[in-house]
């Protein structure tokens, strides 16, 4: 690709200290994210899948700069943001937003939802006064499928799906270039999940932002994402165009993951054969190799 990627991460690594000695020195550590590299193009959706403890959420937090990497570099629009803090990060924050799993715990329960959604507009000086702000918030409400008359209500007065729409309205308020969505549909009722996935698709078409979509539901990832990266024990074991990875998974763990997903059809479900995979950490020093254009697999 000759175009500058929107986001590029190189060799991202994060160690957590799990044991300390008497003097506070680390005696044991857990490598939650291990030498992770990927790019996201403008307007693209990269799915990050894996099981609990695979490091997918930690990767998202590192990209958002909510957490500091032990090693590796992060570039946003070509600019290195790895070491930026405080004021240096402010212009980046405007373009890099987040949607969390549980909208209830990420919204201030004492703030009217319209204020929560409008807050980033005031902080970044996008609106001049209160009436401009109300208009902008009303427009955002319509964009995410909420009635603007609900602006003055509090978070507890909404259902889970509506709260996630509020969280999304807040994330898109500043027209960001990239949204990191960390399991945004996991906590929602099944009948609401499709609504939110469709909303992500609609907003991307209207506004052209890219997504880093962290999830464990492979079916939804397949539907939403242009490319997918599979994580295991902190490493990306396979990455490529979504259709290709699902149709022709190369890594044993990817195959196991796809074969384990139950199919909502009794006839097909009875024919499904689960492929076992011994969960072992990928060998130290193993590298991703390109098996087809853009399709990378970690050498066993």
């Amino acid at each position: 690709m000759t175009m500058t990627p929107l986001l590029r991460v190189e060799g991202l690594t994060r160690d957590f200290v799990t044991k300390k000695d008497l003097f506070g020195r680390a005696t044991a550590k857990l490598r939650a994210v291990n030498d992770v590299s990927f790019e996201i193009a403008p307007g693209e959706t990269l799915g990050l899948v894996g099981e609990s403890g695979s490091g997918k959420s930690t990767t998202g937090r590192l990209v958002l700069r909510l957490d500091d990497a032990t090693d590796g570099r992060i570039f946003f629009e070509g600019q290195e943001i790895t070491g930026l803090r405080g004021g240096g990060l402010a212009p980046i924050r405007k373009k890099l937003q987040v949607v969390f799993q549980d909208p209830y715990s990420s919204l201030n329960p004492r703030m009217r939802v319209g204020e929560s959604v409008g807050e980033p507009l005031s902080v970044h000086g996008v609106v001049a006064n209160a009436s401009e702000r109300r208009d902008a918030v009303a427009e955002l409400f319509r964009k995410v499928g909420l009635d603007p008359r609900f602006m003055d209500r509090f978070p507890h007065q909404f259902s889970g799906g509506q709260r996630q729409r509020i969280g999304i309205a807040r994330a898109v308020a500043l027209s960001p270039k990239l949204i990191v969505a960390d399991e945004p549909i996991t906590a929602l009722d099944v009948s609401i999940q499709a609504q939110i996935i469709n909303l992500f698709l609609d907003l991307q078409e209207q506004m052209g932002m890219a997504y880093l979509f962290i999830a464990h539901d492979l079916g939804m990832v397949r539907y939403l994402c242009h490319r997918v990266a599979v994580m295991l024990r902190g490493r990306i074991v396979e990455m490529g165009p979504t259709d290709q990875v699902f149709a022709n998974p190369q890594h044993g763990y990817t195959r196991a993951l796809i074969s384990a997903a139950p199919i909502p059809d009794p006839d097909r479900e009875l024919l499904r054969r689960r492929l076992p995979y011994e969960l072992v950490p990928p060998p130290e020093g193993a590298q991703l190799a390109e098996v087809a254009p853009g399709h990378w697999v970690l050498a066993a």
Binding site: V190, S191, R222, L224, D243
Partner: peptide, 20 residues
Amino acid sequence: SLPDHDAPVVVDAQGRRPRL
């Protein structure tokens, strides 16, 4: 409303993905 596990996701000429 559930995504089909087997059917390919068909993208239209403008590169738009289908809706659930």
